[in-house]
Nucleic acid binder design. Structure first.
Length: 599
RNA sequence: GCACCCAUAGCUCAAUUGGAUAGAGUGCUUGACUACGAAUCAAGAGGUUGGGGGUUCGACUCCCUCUGGGUGUACCA
């Protein structure tokens, strides 16, 4: 029996193939019929075909009559005979499919490891080279809560793409060439500081934070200082050795501090190519865009107009061009982004580039993509697929962007510390007998996992409310709820003393009880959830699914005893336990959340 | 002014991209531990999907309009 990762796809293929080969069906359904196979409410079956209804409308025929032509052929066909138990027509013209229990059993037996899933999913994106631009940390500043989403969402999306076969380059496009460096260098010289005096990059970064804040205030009071800062920036850009060394030290400090956060949040980047990397690559952009007449001068700046898009049109009351070179001749965000895209295409051979930022930068990326399209067409470069993945704001329980009580942004490190502290409190309460170091390890996994899961489990394009009590309450759609199921299943394995035989559960008999079948059904839907999460790069589809799987499992667990005197019953239930755990571990792994053996 | 995003149960969120009776969690009411981990499960109440119109066999989803929030509007990134 051939087992398909996506049985829905097999049904789809079978219908198309029958329509192509049987004249009666070709005539009734035509060439371009899409069956629209979806998973269905369990009370109807496992899958449903919705495609009859739109076709009936288009061709002016009775949908049920159309279904009645198709269904007998499907029933007689060998194509899905091994997988489908029952096909029924219902409602206005839906066709419902119910999987055979033996097929579910075979599916469960076949997909027995993460590798087994990957064998199928790795073909979904076929090795496509994808550059993921995240988390684009800013330099010389302590990370705050605003850096949480790019790290968490970025890591999850990178992993989803990788699981589905993409060749990714995770590129941390840091902002390391901005005007703030002038102020910082001015202040460092003014206070005669030695950056190497700070052993700990965290401590040094706090100092840089202070310097910048104080420096900006001083500049406001004393315009002469502002001129000094400007001059320092100019000298930096002219590669003055002293300033370049200071700049290097600052970058090193902030990169180290970020690395420390990445480690705690289990975030990985492959390359860190900031704006400074492109400083000698922007001239080519100006030249090419001017030569192709895509860019033109406006008010002293070099800009690209996109008059075909209303909001960017120069006819507006407030014109909004894409400014790629400032009137003082300096590069900006737009120029480096254009140079970066070209580098990604020429150097990394990117077939797809994904940018992750918050929603406020939507206009920028729309302009960047419009400009790139015109430019690449004119130069006959191959334009990769470009996507801007954006998200909403983190709100406090007062429904406003989250802040500390004094109105400052919350430091990311203190957020992580609080997550672990809160988790540790619960862990030590529930497991007073565990060694302290293990309690700490578990608390880290739970605390960080809860924080990440809270961010990933709601639709990224929405704002979400940050609520400690909710994310760590260990109830509802939270990481601890999912982690608990994994730990609980481990306890069953231990009690059944079956760790050695888990790889070979061949005595398992066909599923019998409703709760067993419900659970198996849910397990088989895993690839659908993954497919959905991939199609829109929205991790919450996967989270919702994992939560439902955990709930279905808990329902089964509370009613059906796994450990049973009859070895065939015990094996088939152990099989369900094992696959549930496998998918929870795999699924959480795909969104970047660490799991624990016990908790 | 122009553009984009959002509004779903008291609260926090879903809804398979237009499908069957809009679902979860939380909170509230009630029940299940001599039990493979109760950090769990089962049951009940709770809705004019912001208002109004339209398209469709079918609309939370698409179109128009109004109300109320948020964001962006060239030389910050």
């Amino acid at each position: 029996m051939e087992i398909s990762l996506l049985p829905a796809q097999s049904i789809d293929k079978a219908i198309r193939s029958l329509i192509g080969s049987i004249p009666e069906l070709s005539e009734a359904f035509g060439e371009v019929f899409d069956p629209i196979i979806r998973s269905s409410d369990p009370k109807f079956g496992d899958y449903q075909a919705n495609g009859i209804l739109p076709l009936a409308k288009k061709s002016g025929r009775n949908p049920r009559a159309l279904a009645e032509i198709l269904v007998p052929h499907l029933e007689a066909s060998e194509l899905i005979a091994s997988s489908i138990e029952k096909i029924t027509i219902a409602g206005p013209g839906f066709i419902n499919f119910t999987l055979k229990k033996s097929y579910m059993q075979a599916w469960l037996a076949h997909f027995s490891s993460e590798e087994a899933f990957k064998d199928s999913t790795k073909d979904w994106l076929g090795q496509q080279t994808t550059v993921i631009d995240f988390p684009s940390a800013n330099t010389a500043k302590q990370a705050h809560i605003g850096h949480l989403r790019p790290m968490v969402i970025g890591e999850a999306i990178a992993r989803i793409l990788e699981f589905c076969g993409a060749q990714t380059v995770r590129d941390n496009h840091i902002g390391d060439w901005g005007t703030n460096f002038g102020t910082l260098i001015m202040m460092i010289k003014k206070e005669k500081l030695e950056l190497s005096d700070y052993r700990d990059p965290e401590e040094a970064l706090i100092e840089l934070d202070r310097l910048y804040k104080e420096g900006s205030n001083l500049e406001k009071e004393d315009p002469k200082l502002r001129d000094i800062s400007r001059n320092e920036l100019l000298r930096l850009q002219q590669e003055d050795p002293t300033n370049l060394a200071l700049w290097d030290a600052i970058i090193e400090i902030s990169n180290q501090a970020f690395e420390h956060l990445f480690k705690q949040l289990n975030v990985r980047t492959d390359v860190t190519l900031g704006e400074s990397f492109y400083k000698d690559k922007v001239d080519r952009i100006y030249e090419e865009l001017e030569a192709t007449k895509i860019a033109e001068m406006s008010e002293g700046a070099l800009v690209v107009w996109h008059d075909e898009v209303k909001k960017f049109s120069r006819g507006n009351e407030r014109p909004f061009p894409f400014n790629i070179r400032k009137k003082d001749g300096a590069s900006n965000y737009a120029s480096t982004d254009l140079a970066t895209l070209l580098y990604r295409v020429e150097h990394f051979k990117a077939e797809s580039v994904i940018y992750l930022t918050d929603a406020r930068q939507k206009d920028h990326f729309e302009q960047l993509f419009l400009t790139s399209k015109k430019w690449f067409e004119a130069k006959q470069y191959t334009l990769p697929e470009l996507k801007h993945i954006w998200w909403g704001t983190i709100l406090g329980t007062d429904n406003k962007p989250i802040k500390t009580k004094s109105g400052e942004s919350i430091k990311l490190q203190s957020l992580l510390n609080e997550a672990v502290d809160r988790a540790l409190k619960v862990v030590s309460e529930k497991n007073p007998n565990l060694p302290k170091d293990e309690q700490m390890k578990i608390a880290q996994a739970i605390g960080i996992g809860a924080l990440k899961y809270a961010d990933l489990s709601s639709n990224r394009t929405q704002d979400y409310m940050f609520d400690w009590d909710r994310m760590l309450s260990f109830e509802g759609n939270t990481a601890p709820y999912l982690l608990y199921v994994i730990a609980r299943i481990n306890s069953i394995f231990k009690k059944a003393a079956c760790e050695d035989t888990l790889d070979n559960l061949s005595k398992a008999t066909d599923l019998e009880t409703t709760l067993e079948i419900d659970l198996a059904r849910k397990i088989i839907q895993f690839p659908l959830a993954l497919e959905q999460a991939l199609s829109d790069l929205r991790p919450h589809f996967l989270c919702t699914y994992l939560f439902e799987l955990a709930g279905t499992f808990n329902g089964f667990y509370n009613k059906e005893k796994v450990i049973d005197p009859d070895p065939t019953i015990q094996e088939r239930r152990l099989l369900l336990c094992h696959r549930t755990q496998l998918i929870l571990k795999t699924g959480l792994g795909i969104i970047g959340i660490e799991t624990v053996q016990r908790m």
